[in-house]
């Protein structure tokens, strides 16, 4: 098969690394060759973070570039806007409706763009927007919004539920497993 690309974008500290770990686990269980690429260090300190996941029968490049992502999974609205240029024509955007002001907005040097979701819709993007933060709180922790988004992704892809459950069990610490399974269900039914 042709290589497929997923991008996970968000803000340092939002739990994008766990998300990429879960997705990687699912894809490996499904029998694909998988390459995941992330950047550590400076950008983790509240900066814009991006993880690339590529899978197929033979994968070479670990990175996803403009116009190449089949799916973008965004943890924050502004990040969805920033990275939308990486979406392939006909690709899908799954985004949390959460907004986090970047420092230039906090200091007043820049404005947070208004109505990002409406604008993305107008661009004709195939988009699913979910209030992942509220659903995560409903599951028991604001920190589980990453796993809520995993649930949304699961509902839009056709990997078996067993594979997702196994990935959660292998990637999430046991004491948070129940909470995260609930977050996953809430995301899947959103």
């Amino acid at each position: 098969m042709d290589t497929k690309s997923i991008m996970i974008v968000g803000v340092g500290g939002q739990g994008t690394l766990l998300a990429s770990k879960i997705i990687g686990n699912v894809l490996l269980s499904a029998g694909y060759e998988v390459r995941i690429s992330e950047v550590h260090g400076m950008s983790q300190r509240g900066g814009s973070v991006v993880t690339y996941v590529r899978y197929g029968s033979e994968v070479h490049s670990p990175i996803v570039e403009k116009g190449q992502a089949d799916i973008i999974l965004s943890f924050e609205q502004l990040e969805a806007a920033r990275w939308i240029s990486h979406l392939k024509k006909g690709g899908r955007l799954i985004t949390s409706t959460q907004k986090l002001d970047p420092m230039p907005v906090i200091t007043g040097a820049a404005q947070y763009p208004e109505n990002i979701l409406e604008k993305l819709e107008k661009m004709g993007i195939d988009m699913t927007a979910v209030d992942a933060l509220s659903l995560a709180c409903e599951a028991g922790s604001a920190k589980a919004s990453n796993v809520v988004l995993m649930g949304v992704l699961a509902s839009q892809t056709d990997f078996d539920d067993d594979i997702w459950q196994k990935a959660l069990e292998e990637c999430v610490p046991p004491k948070f497993l129940e909470l995260n399974k609930k977050a996953f269900e809430l995301g899947r039914n959103a």
């Binding site: 300190r45 116009g67 806007a81 024509k89 420092m103 763009p113």
Partner: peptide, 19 residues
């Protein structure tokens, strides 16, 4: 060249910050 659509509006940068 790959075709793609831009957001078409200035997106503020999000530099890393002290926690």
């Amino acid at each position: 060249e790959v075709e793609y659509d831009d957001f078409g509006e200035n997106v503020p940068v999000r530099p890393p910050v002290m926690c």
